[in-house]
Design a protein around this nucleic acid. Structure first.
Length: 610
RNA sequence: GGCCCCGUAGCUCAGUUGGAUAGAGCAUCAGCCUUCUAAGCUGAGGGUCCCUGGUUCGAAUCCAGGCGGGGUCGCCA
């Protein structure tokens, strides 16, 4: 999936964000050195610096940061990588942030920063508070994130959960990275399934009026959740609907049922801490004054992307009543799809795909160039055709990234939770959230790449042990606050309880007293947070935040534990208030970043754990 | 059969968009420990990154082909 690269803009933004965090700051200095070497050495004017990166080396013994600048530029500069690296290294040595520079391997430049650099970064963490890690790479560009979009024919079930949480966290992440995000839900209220919903609700309506409706017939929705709809209809309309023809009552019942189902779905989502800004009705595409599906088809027809023709029979298992017929087709193959796709069904109504094209065109018309859809694994085969359609309908000016979330296997103590065979009786999202709470659901759904299948164990996610990543990370945050409480009683009585006041108080601490290697390691971990945010946002991968938080919590817990054997490493030093305050400042840094990351994931950051 | 996704330690999974000697947790083994908040800690062993070729300074990562698992394949949404 190629996303639009707006190079000029991007470079501009990169420069703007350079002062925002340490890795970007060092990258800027590497750029500056290379630029001066370029003018002196007469390197080609169009040399590409964009491939230069500054990143933490995998092996910590190589220093704090490494850059590939020499290897990337060697060819264009007509120099050997090692020699070029030596020249770059020589100039970096005089930098005030950098303590040591050496050249290794094929031409890596390894940098060790002065301890003061990390300590300064901690000052930034405290200075920026909740804003630390916020990025400008989004450049306020509009992004539409469409997720959940469950059919309004019943409550949400567990299957919807992962996409809902993923989409929501991704939206949070993009917002934090400086994008102008709209969270959107597409209500499929136009297909045959909502007519089935209406007929099912009508039965419940008759039932509410005292009629014995017996068994719900096959093909209708049997769930009890439609009973309140029937009752509401009976209250509002009495028995008047019964006298009407189906053509007359169906729209009335349908819109009532859809409205009540959407209320229920919104309640389910609220239980997971999810709120969309836009609920877009599929039906509104054709009923809202003008028929936008027809308009879109005309638009494509004018471009020559629509024709009447027949398709080869589907491969795979033979279709029972396959009948070769001429139909209205979108020339998807011209835009990278495998076959052309029908837009109008044999009964004359639009296919789902036809409305979907109009819907995505509508997003484009609303000013979005960056579209993200979150779908379930069973929709993988649908990606190419929608991307093809968007290419056609926007002249390639908008790009759609489809994030597929894989299946979740619901377990309890290692045993798969089976859904009952009786249709209509499924495990609802609400049941799961009620049982384990929203935090474990959200965190565990995000503690895995979206395209890998996930086991979700109802028993394990509420365990309070190190094996449970949710607990482990939240406890890190709570432990920080516990340390504040103890410090207030023992050594630092003036430490404010209120967060902003405490941060301001600790920002004045003598952080230069943080000199222990383990402490500096923790500060280094904090310093990669902004970088992690940017990388995760660019890749559309919120799971990276979850893994980062786990690592940060782990390092924090480890340092705490070291204080048991080595009392001089404890955060609270009774005879030294100044050192204690410096360490509390570090703890505050950890607490701030944990809170920030958890907020992106939509998980609470508790100040104590029962 | 076409297309899409996945394949990394015994197990569950990361791997910073192509970087250096591939990492973490669980499990196993060996020591230590009983706390500033309840999660114990430190270390060790453990690898054909599914296979074969290609691209280049450099591949778990990109490309081609194959193997294995899953999903999907007119007029469902």
């Amino acid at each position: 999936m190629t996303r639009p690269r707006i190079c000029v803009r991007r470079r501009h933004m990169a420069e703007k964000s350079q002062s925002q965090h340490l890795f970007a700051a060092v990258l800027a200095r590497v750029h500056a050195v290379c630029a001066s070497l370029a003018t002196e050495g007469g390197w080609p004017a169009d040399m590409d610096f964009s491939r230069i990166v500054v990143e933490p080396p995998r092996d910590a013994s190589h220093g704090d940061m490494a850059t590939n600048a020499a290897m990337v530029l060697a060819k264009d500069a007509k120099a050997k990588p090692r020699e070029l690296a030596d020249r770059i290294a020589e100039r970096l040595r005089s930098d005030d942030l950098i303590a040591a520079v050496d050249v290794a391997g094929p031409g890596f430049i390894n940098l060790s920063l002065k301890p003061s650099a990390w300590v300064e970064e901690l000052r930034s963490v405290l200075g920026e508070g909740a804003g630390y890690g916020r990025s400008a790479i989004g450049a306020s560009q509009k992004v539409n994130v469409e997720y959940v979009s469950a059919n309004p024919t019943g409550p949400m079930h567990v299957g919807h959960c992962r996409g809902a949480v993923f989409g929501d966290a991704l939206a949070n992440l993009l917002q934090f990275a400086g994008f102008d995000v709209v969270r959107e839900y597409y209500i499929n209220d136009a297909g045959a399934q909502v007519d089935v919903l209406a007929r099912s609700a009508f039965l419940r309506y008759r039932e509410a009026l005292g009629e014995d409706i017996g068994e719900i017939p096959d093909g209708l929705y049997p769930g009890d959740y439609l009973k309140p709809v029937g009752e509401a209809l009976a209250r509002e309309h009495g028995d008047r609907l019964k006298a009407m023809s189906e053509a007359a009552w169906l729209p009335i019942v349908r819109s009532k049922a859809i409205a009540m189902m959407m209320d229920e779905i919104k309640g389910d989502l609220a239980a997971l801490n999810i709120k969309h800004e836009v609920f877009f009705s599929e039906r509104s595409l054709i009923t809202d004054g003008n028929n936008r599906v027809a308009e879109t088809i005309d638009f494509l027809r004018a471009k020559g992307d629509i024709y009447e023709g027949s398709l080869p029979p589907p491969k795979g298992k033979p279709v029972e009543d396959y009948e070769d017929r001429v139909q209205t087709l979108f020339r998807a193959t011209a835009y990278g799809d495998d076959v052309d796709r029908p837009l109008i069904k044999s009964d004359g109504s639009y296919t789902y795909f036809a409305s979907d094209i109009a819907y995505h065109k509508n997003k484009f018309d609303r000013g979005f160039r960056d579209l993200i859809d979150v779908w379930g694994a069973d929709h993988g085969g649908y990606i190419k055709r929608v991307q093809a359609a968007i290419k056609a309908v926007t002249d390639g000016k908008a790009a759609l990234d489809v994030k597929i979330v894989q299946l979740v296997r619901l377990l309890r103590n290692g045993e798969q939770v089976r859904m009952s065979k009786r249709s209509g009786d499924f495990v609802t999202l609400r049941e799961v959230v009620d049982e384990v709470g929203s935090d474990p659901v959200r965190f565990m759904m995000l503690f895995r790449k979206n395209d890998a299948v996930l086991d979700f164990d109802l028993a394990k996610v509420i365990e309070q042990s190190k094996d449970n990543a949710v607990f482990y990370v939240q406890y890190g945050h709570a432990r920080g606050h516990s340390i504040f409480r103890n410090a207030r009683e023992e050594v630092v009585p003036g430490l404010p309880e209120e967060a902003a006041a405490r941060v301001a108080y600790l920002a004045k601490a003598a952080v230069v007293r943080l000199t222990e290697p383990a402490e500096l390691d923790l500060l280094k971990r904090l310093a990669v947070y902004p970088r992690t945010v940017e990388a995760a946002a660019t890749a559309h991968e919120p799971h990276r935040i979850a893994f980062y938080l786990y690592d940060l919590a782990s390092e924090f817990h480890a340092l705490w534990t070291k204080g048991r054997d080595l009392p001089h490493l404890r955060f609270i030093i009774n005879h030294d208030a100044e050192l204690t305050k410096a360490r509390l400042a570090m703890v505050q840094g950890v607490v701030s970043v944990l809170a920030s990351g958890l907020a992106i994931l939509g998980v609470h950051a508790p100040t104590e754990m029962r």
